[in-house]
Amino acid sequence: MNQTFRTQARHGYSVQFSPYFPHRLACTASQYYGIAGCGSLFVLDAFSDGIRPVRVFDWNESLFDLVWAENNENIIVTCSGDGSIQVWDVAQPQGPLKVLKEHTKEVNGIDWSQTRNEHLVISASWDKLLKVWDVSKDQALQTFQGHDHIVYTCCWSPHIPGLFASASGDHTLRLWDTRKPEGYVRLIPAHEAEILSCDWCKYDQNILFSGGVDGLIRGWDVRNPKLPTCELRGHTYAVRRLCASPFQGSIIASASYDFSIKIWDVIKQVCVDTIEHHTEFVYGLDFNVHVPNQMADCGWDELLHVYNTSPYT
């Protein structure tokens, strides 16, 4: 399958497949490249005969990231340029069920824990803070401070409850643990440039990947991160998003400002495929956890693609 959907004068920022349905995905996109204007959340069904919108929600500020709930097939959480987090119900056509606002600047990243029964959400903001939420409550449960610059991305460990990573413009990755009173666990000076993205290996609880403005992707063993476990070179501009394969521990995908998506073998440290179907920055990227070798991406050219790639072994 190779299908395309246009995000209707909105520039794509994030895309994610549903953890419940193999055909469903969602995308956040914003007017005027996210600098000004409104944002939209597109809920889509992708089949062999095309991509159809199920629901489109609008917000009065840019929408930058999204995550599906792990405890309800209809709930999506988004984050926006006004410092707020929105909770949406796909089954209800009205506005958000809840809006949570504690960040004082843009919220750029959001993630839902897959390892805990508390259904925790983490948010990353331009105000240099990370916050942990239970979206059924009205206030953040915890706030984590330590980065010296914008926090671009946050991601829960898929293996270890309470552990999450963050990537920042201060050139560092940081590890945090909600179970520790001080929260902070480790600092990794991972790049000599702003770090825009990070993701955990789905098959090794100790491996974390980072992507930066320097165009590099690096792997880190968080137990001893003095030197990277791999360094992947090939992008000519910033790496905006990383996504580790849910099916193969050696495979990771990257989306870049050089308009391309690349698939990498981190063991061999080589690029095994380059996908070039965008004409602007590529911002969103995801693997379908239900369908091996199926991916989705979105970019500033207003295009969202769902496609099947070759098996990489």
Rank of each mutant, 00 (worst) to 15 (best):
N2S: 09
S14N: 12
P22T: 09
A26K: 02
A29C: 08
G37L: 05
S40Q: 10
L41I: 12
L41R: 02
V43F: 13
D45V: 15
F57K: 14
S62I: 06
V67S: 13
N72C: 15
I75Y: 06
Q86D: 13
A91F: 05
P93L: 08
P93T: 11
Q94R: 14
L100K: 04
H103A: 01
D111N: 14
S113Y: 11
S113A: 14
L120Y: 10
W126A: 15
W126Y: 15
K128M: 13
K128F: 15
Q139A: 14
A140Q: 11
A140F: 11
A140I: 09
T143L: 03
T143S: 12
G146Y: 00
H149A: 14
I150E: 13
S157I: 02
H171P: 01
R174Y: 01
L175R: 03
W176K: 08
D177Y: 10
P181I: 08
P189W: 02
S197N: 06
C198V: 05
W200G: 00
D204V: 08
F209S: 15
D214A: 08
G219V: 05
R223G: 10
K226T: 14
K226H: 13
P228I: 08
G234W: 06
H235V: 03
A238N: 03
A238F: 05
S254I: 05
A255I: 01
I261N: 00
W264C: 07
D265R: 10
V270D: 08
V272M: 10
V272L: 09
V272N: 08
H278T: 00
E280M: 03
G284D: 05
G284I: 05
D286T: 11
W300P: 00
V306F: 00
S310D: 15
Y312V: 10
